[in-house]
């Protein structure tokens, strides 16, 4: 799959969604990630999706600075296919994960009309190496594609993204 720029609905009406529907979407996305349901998780993305975990500065220039994750749609697909080989050692066995998503807030519309949503999260990861506590701020951009909510953007601003952190090979 490739990042299809044609999927951006430039003259579409700005996306409007009920906060309850938004929450349901975020909880489902979180559950698919926690349970390593890779195909289900990937299906939530639009064709122009961008998955971004900045480093050092939440608002870093992602075209000029290192990021922890900076996946366009094509690289999201590669990441998923890597998990599905069963030989992504840092996820064999899977980390046990549970996250709480809260403070869900509709922030307005992005330039392309997508609905921008913020939320906070706390996540516990358990694996043989250690337990890790991950926390931060999610920013999503959502739009309706074929009658279902889909995400075109997910940014994860970790509270400790400027510090040394452990391997983060699951879907955050």
């Amino acid at each position: 799959m490739t990042a299809a720029a044609t999927a951006i609905p430039t003259d579409a009406e700005p996306t409007q969604l009920d906060v309850r529907d938004v929450e349901q979407f975020l909880y489902r996305e979180a559950r698919f990630a926690d349970e390593h349901r890779y195909d289900d998780w990937e299906a939530l993305w639009t064709q122009d999706g961008l998955y971004w975990v900045p480093a050092n500065d939440d608002d870093a220039d992602r075209m000029a600075k290192m990021s922890i994750i900076h996946d366009n749609r094509s690289r999201i697909a590669t990441r998923i296919r890597q998990f599905q080989t069963g030989r992504r050692h840092s996820q064999v066995p899977h980390s046990r994960l549970r996250r709480v998503v809260s403070n869900v807030e509709i922030l307005g519309n992005a330039e392309n009309g997508d609905l921008e949503v913020g939320a906070n999260f706390v996540l516990v990861e358990s694996r043989e190496r250690s337990n890790e506590l991950w926390a931060g701020r999610y920013t999503y951009r959502l739009r309706v594609v074929d009658g279902a909510i889909a995400m075109s953007y997910k940014k994860v601003a970790l509270v400790d993204n400027a510090r040394a952190i452990a391997t983060l090979s699951f879907l955050i």
Partner: peptide, 19 residues
């Protein structure tokens, strides 16, 4: 970015081996 660091498609696995 795709290769290295905590989520890198290469280095996450090297680091798993180190540990």
């Amino acid at each position: 970015i795709g290769s290295v660091g905590p989520a890198g498609m290469l280095l996450a696995d090297d680091t798993e081996m180190y540990e």
